[in-house]
Write a protein that binds this DNA or RNA. Structure first.
Lengths: 218, 218
DNA sequence: TTGTCAATTGTCAGTGACTGACACTAGCCT
DNA sequence: AGGCTAGTGTCAGTCACTGACAATTGACAA
């Protein structure tokens, strides 16, 4: 376990780290990502630019610090799903349960409202969206391995883990996308949308869509 | 329709444009993307750096010039699918048919072998992968609209077009990924892999995977 | 053919993200 | 107290990219 008091040096580091995130998100969401320079951030936190780049590998990375945490929450939730559950159910229940706990986890670092604004910004900033999608692709690989393990399969021998995860992640991406465009921008909102969209996956892959399922505005 | 001989000015532009692509891909695939500077490219083509950035918005963009063409091939193929075909079948047949015509289309601009090496490079270069995924996301939106039109639906009223396309694109991404990692790096190879992986999508979403489908190494 | 117009290109100066090298400061530990 | 070292600042430099303006060169009419 971790030491109760990690020493002054560690605490100072943590403070600088968190301050950089908070200030960066604040500036990003008010002025826009591109119109915010790293120099502005470090000036507000009173550290050198060099220090910023020792904490974060790039300007993009600081924008994803909180998002990263939320994703880890999901991966952990997936790991805790009962082995009897089928692959897709495990994925489904893992997201839903991670949304349940995301609120508190986020609030520990930044105001939830700031996180939500940040999420919107990611979707509408090309450079951040690209970064986000690449990171998601990496996470997909992790998830596919977990699913393969659950089923006692080899990720490189059976394509189903990667395929199932790719389809699942695709729907999750659309969910996030529609969520930021919709009106109910709350954590409950995305939870509901997640369930609704996952329910649509099966029918959407059916040979034809003759059954009317309209009226599903985001 | 276009004039048979578009004038000296136009031809010169086309030559510079194509030369930049060819030289860039050649340098990228031999030295690596990051280790190639824009200055090296423009020096080899004997134009100024400013000119490069008038043709391509970024260093990444030049790496996707050919890829972009192949994607347009797919979108066109989808548009030509018979309306009676169900959404997923239309998508499936459109990719397969576009792979059939991709070879010639590519050869018109660069050697196919150079294109294939370039594709591999994209998958293994973080900055390019990010760019690629973002562009793919944009293409998905286009495709979703086409599907919605085919079915007489409103993309913003019914989530199925975006969901189906997201799942489909996810599988296509995995296909490309596995293809570059595998041994059969030919256009026939990716065609075969496409069919195989799409066939796995349904089973992969089933409640459980008790049926053995191993031995499917990429 | 020549002169004019407009499209292309080049030059220059600058911004902003990022990196390596090295000196410096300040917790930590004996 | 004093040495060790993790963390920080400074500096100089690279590279992608951009706006402004000057120079060039096809296109096209007189």
């Amino acid at each position: 376990m971790t030491v109760p008091t990690p020493g002054l040096r560690e605490r100072k580091k943590q403070r600088t780290h968190d301050a950089l995130i908070r200030v960066a998100l604040e500036l990003f969401t008010t002025q826009g990502y591109e119109r915010t320079t790293v120099d502005e951030i470090v000036e507000a936190v009173e550290v050198s630019q060099r220090t910023f780049f020792r904490y974060f590998g790039s300007k993009e990375e600081v924008a994803f610090a909180v998002q990263h945490m939320v994703e880890e929450l999901f991966v952990r939730a997936l790991g805790e799903r009962p082995p009897a559950e089928g692959p897709f159910d495990a994925l489904r229940h893992a997201v839903l349960s991670s949304w349940d706990h995301a609120g508190e986890a986020i609030a520990d670092v930044v105001p939830v409202e700031l996180y939500l604004r940040n999420f919107q910004m990611i979707e509408s900033t090309p450079a951040l969206l690209a970064f986000h999608l690449r990171r998601s692709a990496e996470t997909e690989e992790t998830i596919a391995r977990i699913i393969a393990d659950r089923e006692g399969l080899d990720v490189d021998g059976d394509p189903r883990p990667r395929i199932a995860v790719a389809a699942f992640s695709g729907v999750m991406r659309v969910t996030g996308q529609m969520w930021v465009r919709g009106t109910d921008q709350s954590l409950e909102g995305i939870r509901a949308l997640t369930e609704r969209y996952l329910d649509h996956l099966g029918p959407a892959l059916a040979p034809h869509w003759r059954t009317g399922a309209a009226g599903d505005a985001p």
